[in-house]
Write a protein that binds this DNA or RNA. Structure first.
Length: 646
RNA sequence: GCCGGGAUAGCUCAAUGGUAGAGCAGCGGUUUCGUAAAUCGCAGGUUGGAGGUUCGAUUCCUCUUCUCGGCUCCA
């Protein structure tokens, strides 16, 4: 007998070789019908795999992340089975579960699988699922595994098996399909009730550009049709929030083929939002001891040779521009920091001057591969809310803490609650990739880790994700479609001060090297705006709204009164417009609602005679009439409330 | 950069190997109106660009630009 411990610490004995499913059945039949996989001693297993030793158990269903994962992984196998049946001779790469759904990379030879094939594959998958085939695990020797795929002629699987150790290799079978797989899988295909294949895309074998490009099929499956419908509905809604769509509808920004891809043109309304954000941050920074600077958009190539950027990224950036007569080479600036280093070096610095925090909203230009450009999230020209903090080594941690506090303040004000924080360290196995001494790297990494621990931020640590000049802390927010984007960033840099030979005179009257911290709470204004647009679905809070109030006269007879109201509000720096077209009030309201203007003031006969305005709030409807002074009080109150920090 | 889609009026979209149509927007009338679309009329297009096949191309082919979904990359 084996002792099984349940999550509530109850212990029960079962015969040797009992499976998770057996144990589930012992609890209740209805539960057994929902079990997708089980967690045995912290490891996810097939529910049908016999347990031979005492163990802790957790039954995993659709409600558990790991349960979903085994469901989708099994779905990937089901799709592979369908593909083999529809496209005989197809070769399989890898087919994992992902955050939502699964994919399989396949090599279909000369036959190109296109989107038109997807419905047929879906149909086949449903047909195979209906056969109620069991997923069966088989331990297999390396020799036999190799033999199987040699006969099948699948070089991708052979490559994978060759890297595995004998004795750890398992196959999974379902219906007429066999795959090399670590598992775990769900008990049977019958759980898979609804199937949707979403997209088809190219993907390099093992993610390496040098390898052959396979066809990747993305899909998602659910245990109930209703859940698929709900998921598709959410996808549809996400599309409605897409910043590219809203940006066009609300006339925030545009792109022009003539100007070039990835070069955003900001329209008046988008510009007002940008400038409001910039003003907000400038004010915060002023209070926190930052000083402003302005530097040009170009710099001599030599500047970037000194900084090391030319060596590292020169071949992958815009070509230098040259002066007509002397032939001097200049680069569009890919970063602001080299310019800022020169500002630091402008005069001798004392330890008393530090930390020196110089800030600039600087537009930078980077060559991004054409296939990578994406709305405002990935562009070739963007504005960094940049600042470089030059400080003494003993000030690094404190400065780091100050910056974290600023980033959190920004996020809080804008109501970003769901973000992840990532510490990126260097890969100690691959030191060649980075510049700077071991000693410097170790100190920098320690400072970051300690600072985040002190603020209590929950972080994930990624080894090998550091910038080439130093470790960093990034704040990552997801867009409407769930794609993660890095926004705020704080990066320690022991390297640039070295390269620019920056110094300060310490209290010991000796020369010392300052430490540099790069930081940008928004990261890129462009990307930040994209995420912001999707976050609010275009319904900007009052303080950010490019049009805060619009006045809607009932008819032309009340235009004079409407203009009087307009001027009163303008005097209070309220962003106000008037809709004096010869249209019915219903239409004016509709259009103001569509434009997501937070406040509408309707004025007609009644308001004119009582010197009031009828207030209507976007999405909330008619709020009744107020005198001008009461309205201004309401406006001020709404302004304060519109910052999430309150 | 790579794989696969796409590009038709300002916007959203329709149509066809015989040189294009709707709604909204725009412009001109009529209407002067009370909380999400009044009404009549007019105008609007080298069907992204270049080349080719064809008697004839917006449609088929090639190249190119931009764009979308991924991959790779990302200071």
């Amino acid at each position: 007998m084996i002792k099984i411990t349940f999550p509530d610490n109850n212990v029960k004995e079962y015969p040797d070789g009992s499976t998770g499913l057996d144990i589930a059945k012992d609890i209740s039949n209805s539960l057994a019908k929902e079990v997708l996989s089980v967690k045995i001693n912290g490891e996810v297993w097939d529910a049908t795999r016999p347990i031979d030793t005492d163990a802790t158990i957790q039954l995993l269903t659709w409600k558990d992340k790991e349960g979903k994962s085994s469901f989708w992984h099994s779905s990937a196998h089901l799709m592979a089975e369908a593909l083999e049946s529809l496209f005989p001779g197809i070769k399989l790469g890898i087919g994992p579960a992902i955050e939502t759904g699964f994919y399989y990379d396949v090599d279909s030879g000369d036959k190109q699988i296109t989107e038109e094939d997807l419905p047929a594959i879906e149909k086949k998958m449903k047909e195979l699922a209906g056969q109620n085939n069991e997923y069966r695990r088989e331990e297999i020797s390396k020799k036999d595994a190799l033999k199987y795929f040699e006969e099948k002629g699948d070089e991708y699987k052979l490559e994978l098996i060759n890297e595995l150790e004998d004795g750890t290799i398992t196959f999974y079978h379902q219906g007429g399909f066999t795959d090399l797989c670590r598992g775990p899988h769900i008990p049977s295909t019958k759980f898979i009730k609804s199937v949707k294949l979403l997209t088809i895309a190219g993907a390099y074998w093992r993610g390496d550009e040098k390898n052959k490009q396979l066809t990747r099929l993305y899909g998602v499956t659910f245990p109930k049709q209703a859940e698929l419908d709900e998921y598709l509905d959410i996808l549809e809604q996400a599309k409605e929030r897409d910043h590219r769509k809203i940006g066009k509808e609300l006339e925030l920004f545009m792109f022009s083929e003539k100007v070039g891809g990835g070069l955003p043109l900001w329209l008046p309304k988008g510009t007002i939002i940008r400038e409001t954000l910039i003003d907000f941050l400038k004010k915060e920074q002023l209070q926190r001891g930052y000083v402003p600077v302005v530097t040009p958009h170009i710099g001599k190539k030599d500047l970037y040779v000194t900084s090391g950027h030319w060596e590292k990224y020169g071949s992958d950036s815009f070509r230098p521009i040259t002066t007509p007569h002397e032939g001097e080479e200049y680069l569009l600036k890919p970063m602001n920091c080299p310019h800022h280093c020169e500002i630091y070096a402008y005069k001798p610095r004392s330890y008393r001057d530090l930390p020196l925090r110089i800030a600039e909203f600087g537009m930078v230009y980077r060559y991004e591969q054409s296939g990578e450009l994406n709305g405002l999230t990935r562009v070739r020209s963007f504005t960094v809310d940049d600042a470089h903090i030059f400080c003494r080594p003993d000030q690094v941690k404190e400065e780091f803490l100050n910056v974290i506090d600023l980033v959190l303040h920004v996020f809080k004000t804008l109501g970003f609650k769901e973000f992840t924080t990532q510490i990126s360290l260097r890969d100690p196995e691959d030191k060649e990739k980075y510049i700077g001494s071991d000693e410097n790297w170790e100190k920098a990494e320690r400072d970051i880790i300690e600072a985040t621990e002190e603020t209590g931020l929950e972080t994930v640590t990624e080894i090998g994700e550091a910038a080439f000049y130093g470790p960093k802390l990034d704040f990552i927010v997801k867009d409407a479609l769930g794609r993660p984007w890095q926004l705020g960033t704080i990066q320690v840099d022991y390297n640039l001060p070295e390269r620019f030979k920056l110094e300060y005179i310490g209290d010991d009257n000796e020369r010392h090297r300052p430490v540099m911290i790069h930081r940008a709470p928004f990261g890129s204004l462009e990307r930040f705006m994209a995420v912001l647009i999707e976050h609010y679905a275009g319904n900007f809070p009052l303080w950010l709204a490019p049009e805060q109030v619009t006045i809607l006269p009932i008819s032309e007879k009340f235009h004079d009164y409407a203009v009087k109201v307009l001027n009163l509000l303008k005097n209070d720096d309220i962003k106000v417009t008037i809709d004096d077209r010869n249209e019915k009030i219903g239409k004016k309201i509709r259009e103001a609602e569509v434009k997501k203007i937070p406040i509408m003031l309707i004025v007609g006969e009644k308001e004119q005679s009582t010197e009031e305005v009828a207030v209507r709030l976007h999405g909330k409807g008619d709020q009744g009439s107020l005198t001008m002074s009461s309205f201004k009080e309401l406006f001020d109150k709404l302004m304060i409330e519109s910052k999430s920090i309150n």
